[in-house]
């Protein structure tokens, strides 16, 4: 197998090991066609979000009073002026979608990092110390998991008040127990391994054992869960936006766009279809990447 021979062969200068690691990773990742396509789409999305002001023909909140609910360019009555049509107040849907990519990616990144930080901290503590610490933390996590996640997020947002940031906080809180559980399980498995005892014998304290010895060995499943949560976060933010509790209009967030176009579903299909498609494609791409990452990072699934 190609990757094998690169591993055994002579090392190049610089940082040879990390390089071969990356190469092996890419080898296993690229076996999964879907994952590569997902990655490609995701990169396009990131570029779209980054260069939205350059790509978008209009600003996201500019209204054209002469063009309410203009259909997309290829339909009767549409024009190339508005490629994907306009919404009920005459804003260009394409521009709003491009700007909306920024919000979606922001939501994903912020929510995942919040949930990761919280989940890792709690999971590490629970898995490492066990005993009453474990019981206390994990029962709270179970409690959170027992609620339907959207419902709990709704409750949180109503308490905190609607808004994009509060929605992100609520979603992070809802997603966080999954990380805590995952980390706890991995820590418990790793903690009984001999290298951890060896670190202890070498004099490593609790913090060092947790962060330097155990945590790096638990990262594989976390990365996968992180990617999958990224798409989850986007979905839930869209759902909250749709219910009017997430980003507030006129923010061009995809879920909010859906909500404000609800009444025109029968009259103007494009107003709801395009934001919905955007959400679908983004979530699908990220989930595909997550699958590929799982294949590439989980040694048990590796075909050697």
């Amino acid at each position: 197998m190609m990757s094998q021979s690169t591993e055994i062969g002579p090392m190049a200068a610089g940082n040879p090991d990390r390089l071969t690691g990356l190469r092996t990773f890419w080898y296993y990742f690229s076996v999964n066609r879907g994952a590569v396509i997902g990655l490609f789409v995701f990169i396009l999305l990131v570029l779209a979000a980054l260069f939205a002001p350059l790509l978008a023909p209009y600003a996201p909140d500019v209204q054209d009073k002469t063009a309410f609910l203009r259909p997309p360019a290829w339909q009767d009555g549409g024009s190339t002026q508005y490629l994907l049509g306009t919404d009920p107040v005459g804003r260009d849907i394409l521009s709003r979608l491009l700007y909306g990519a920024r919000f979606s990616l922001l939501i994903g990144a912020v929510v995942v990092s919040l949930a990761l930080t919280g989940g890792i901290t709690l999971g590490l503590l629970a898995g490492y110390f066990r005993g009453w610490v474990d019981v206390a933390i994990m029962r709270v996590m179970d409690l959170i998991l027992a609620f339907p996640s959207l419902l709990l997020a709704l409750v949180m947002v109503t308490i905190l008040g609607p808004g994009l940031f509060n929605a992100m906080l609520a979603i992070a809180l809802v997603l966080q127990p999954h990380f805590a559980r995952l980390v706890r399980a991995a820590v418990m498995a790793e903690k009984s391994r001999e290298y951890v005892v060896a670190a202890k014998v070498a004099g490593a304290g609790h913090i060092r054992q947790m962060l330097r010895t155990i945590l790096p060995n638990c990262l594989g499943p976390l990365i996968v869960q992180g990617t999958l949560s990224f798409s989850n976060a986007i979905l839930e933010a869209a759902a909250l936006g749709f219910l009017g509790l997430g980003a507030q209009p006129p923010t061009p967030e995809w879920g909010t766009m859906l909500a404000s176009a609800r009444e025109f579903i029968l009259r103007a299909w494009w107003v709801v279809t395009f934001p919905g498609l955007a959400i679908l494609i983004t979530v699908l791409a990220i989930n595909l990447i997550g699958d590929g990452l799982r294949d590439a990072l989980d040694p048990k699934l590796r075909r050697s």
């Binding site: 090991d17 391994r193 001999e194 290298y195 005892v197 060896a198 670190a199 010895t213 790096p216 060995n217």
Partner: peptide, 8 residues
């Protein structure tokens, strides 16, 4: 098992 797989 006694060497940390992520440590040089």
């Amino acid at each position: 098992g006694s060497l940390n797989p992520r440590q040089k």
